[in-house]
Structure formats: C-alpha cells, structure tokens
Design a protein around this nucleic acid. Structure first.
Lengths: 224, 224
DNA sequence: CCTCTGTCAAGAGCAGTGCTCTCTTATGAG
DNA sequence: CTCATAAGAGAGCACTGCTCTTGACAGAGG
C-alpha cells in the first residue's frame, strides 16, 4: 500500500536527480532536487539517508541501463553472426554513453571523491562485459578464435582467471585480445564523451565503426 | 621583486591545492587551501580570480607534468629501438598516472561540471601523443609500418588529418592501428585508476606490459 | 470508537562552501 | 620621503549537506 507510494516517490527523486546530473554532474544538490519536487530538503532523507546513497542508486541504475542496452542490442542479432553481435555490443555501449553522457561519467569517469562503491555494484557492473564473453564463448565453441599468442605465465594466470568467469572455453590468446578490445572500446568512448577528441576528430562515428571492425578481425570474429 | 614573491605564492597555493586534490578530488575547497596556507579565504582571489582558474592551472600543470614524464622516458631510449621507445611511452603514462591518480582524473576523467577548458590547454594536452607520433614517424621513415589496411574514405580523411599533425609520413593503416593503441593505453590506465579492474585483475603491471607489447607487434614496431 | 504507533513533511539550525565588497596595512617605486 | 598599489582581513550573501525537533496523519489493536 504505502510501500507503493514510497517506491513511486523514490523513482521520482531519482528521475529529478538524473535530470540534475545533466547540469551539475556528480555534485548534484539534494536541496535543488527537493525544490524541483516541491518538497522541503529534509524530506528527501526519508528516502535516501545521504547524498551518497542517492548517487549509489543512480550508479546502479546506470549500470543496469547500460547492461540492458547492450543485452538488447546483442540479442537482436542472429546468433551465428558473431561479428555482428560484437559490433552490436560496441555500438550499444557508445550509443548509450552518447545518450546518457553524465551517467556514463558517473560510472566510468573519475570516482566521486568521498564516495566508495558498495559491493553490490560489482555484479551489475560486469553485465556488459559478460555479454561480450558470451559472444566469444560461442565463437570459440565452433572452432573460431584459435590463436597461439604466447603469454608470460603470470599474465596467463590473470587472463585465465577472467576467462573462467566470462568465457571458459576461449583460449587465453584470444581472451587477451578481447580484453584489449574492451579497453580500446571504453578508451574511445571515454575520450569522446570527455572531450579528448575535440579539435582532433570531426566524425567519431565512422572512425569508431572502423576501429571496432578492425578489432573484430584482430580477435577473429568473422564479419558478414 | 614583487613579482617573484607573487610567483612563489602562486606555486605555494597550487602545491597545497594539489595536496587537497588527493583527498577531495576536483571539488577542493579554496577556504581549506587558504586555511592550510594561514591566509584568509578572500586573499586567494588576489592570485586566482576564481576556483575554476585554480583548476585550470592545476590541469595545465598536470598536462605538462605528464608530457615531461613521457618525453623523459622516451628520450632515454636508444633512437633505433622503436619498440623500446613505444613501451617507454606507455609505461611513462601509466607510471605517472599511478603516481598522480588525482591529477590524472582531473585531465582524463569526467570533466568538472561547470568547468570549460580554455583553448590554451589543447597545445599542452597533445604533447604526449605527439611524442608517440614521433616514434612511428621515425619507424615509418626507415620502411617499417607498411600496412595496407583499407579504410572507408571518410575514416581515411579523418585519420590522415590527425597524421598530418603528429606523423605525416606514416601510412594511414598504421596510423589507425596506432590510434587504437593510444585508446587502449588510456582505456587500461583509466580502468586501473578508476577502480574498474578491482576484483578482476590482481597484477595489472604484467598484464599492461603484455598488452602493450602485443600492440607494438600489431602496429609493427620491432621489440628487441 | 478510541488510542497508540509508525511514517512523513516541515522548519530551524549548524558548519561549511564560492565569491564580493570594503577597509586597512605595508611595501617598493619614483 | 611620499604615495600609489598590492595584499591581507573581515563581514556578508546565497548556497550546500545534514541533524534534530515538532507537528500532522494514517492504519492497526483493544
């Protein structure tokens, strides 16, 4: 009963906070949120015990939104089209980031100063990369992604441990290449969102497309 | 005379602000800086007309410090060792970032909300990548880096324009690979600094070394 | 039907912030 | 030695996160 009203109130606060995020960034103001909501500032603390808790909620929402976007994009591609599934993931990440730059900054930018991410975030944070893991896992199972890159033992162990979680049957050579690709993907998106590409790149879109296609080839995912 | 005292004061303010940066991040407090300096808060405005100007100064300092670190590391490697020069650059970036995580966050993390980087920053910001450009330029001049990667026309133009600035004689195929490497480098460092690798990677150092060596091979820079 | 309890909003208040303004001091150039 | 100028001090404005107390209201138990 009243729990439903409470949930609606929480959603409303988060929606306004998200809007605030666009103009104020991570240091949004509880009082301004309260003002927009027609509520006195202290009332917000009935729903979020502190500003950090509001931020945590926004961060969790952002991770799940990104995960949903990636999952939807990848799920819409025919299972056998591994390159297509890979590209769908890449574009989903970039498109979501471009559409929600401040939420992207919240989760992939500088950590909020006093803020420490609670442990609940790690599960939801790894969803996107797990989906990529599924793609290379499927590709490896039908015999693709056979690389004999030689890794130093300590690196091999490190990569193997990651592989056990997201793609157990992928050889570590291909896994290491996939990791590099993941890093390049987020390097590109972060540079683009954070303005590091200004005055240097005019059309990031086609450049991104090309870089990711090159990475698909490098990993060994066939492009139709 | 008077100007020297003023310069010393500015340096002192920046030094204390940098220290503050470590604990408070980008939303450091002018009043706290003033307190640490034994000065009343309004006196700071004699030296920096606003908090953003202080941040700009810190950002410029950070870019030049990173540029210096990269230049020193790259300059210490024998000219003919292209792979070594490349790896020196990569490690210089990562080492500097690990040693100065908050300054790294200032320049490569989320942009400060109300803050807009003045045009002076772009020149100093491109120093590091320009040094990498010099390495592949030298390598290309002796006949390395011959790739026939085919790029879509609009991407080719984009990459060529970047190449004209940092490495005019490098074919765009290799240039595009270098760009991807640069993105991966900063993707790695950002993930490591911003905690995205926590609970996933135990020894980032060796993993970084391996990834960058793989990229050197991918670009075509010979490793001794 | 009444009372009692738990939830919510409101308001005041504390300590802190960036920034502006005015006043006072002292220092170095002429 | 004079005096314009630079620099610090202090008060004040509007804002922030957060706490505490007070008052209103709804629903459950007797």
């Amino acid at each position: 009963m009243r729990a439903r009203l409470r949930a609606e109130m929480i959603d409303e606060i988060k929606a306004i906070a998200r809007r605030q995020l666009a103009t104020e960034g991570a240091n949004l103001s509880l009082r301004a949120v309260a003002r927009d909501l027609g509520i006195v500032s202290s009332a917000i603390y009935r729903y979020f015990p502190s500003r950090d808790d509001l931020l945590t909620a926004l961060i969790l929402d952002a991770y799940t939104a990104l995960g949903d976007a990636v999952a939807a994009a990848e799920g819409a591609v025919e299972r056998g089209d591994f390159g297509g599934r890979f590209l769908a993931i890449c574009h989903a990440v970039r498109d979501w980031a471009l559409a929600n730059p401040h939420e992207y900054a919240l989760i992939y930018g500088s950590p909020v100063p006093g803020y420490a991410a609670p442990a609940d975030t790690v599960a939801v944070a790894t969803r996107a990369v797990t989906i990529l893991g599924g793609v290379i896992e499927d590709a490896a199972r039908i015999g693709l992604l056979r690389y004999d890159d030689v890794l130093p033992p300590e690196v091999a162990g490190e990569v193997a441990r990651i592989g056990e979680i997201i793609a157990p049957s992928v050889p570590i050579g291909a896994l290491s290449r996939t990791l590099g690709t993941w890093l390049q993907l987020f390097g590109f998106v972060s540079f683009e969102i954070f303005g590091q590409l200004n005055n240097a790149v005019e059309l990031p879109g086609p450049l991104f497309e090309h870089q990711m296609r090159a990475q698909a080839r490098y990993i060994g995912l066939p492009l139709l």
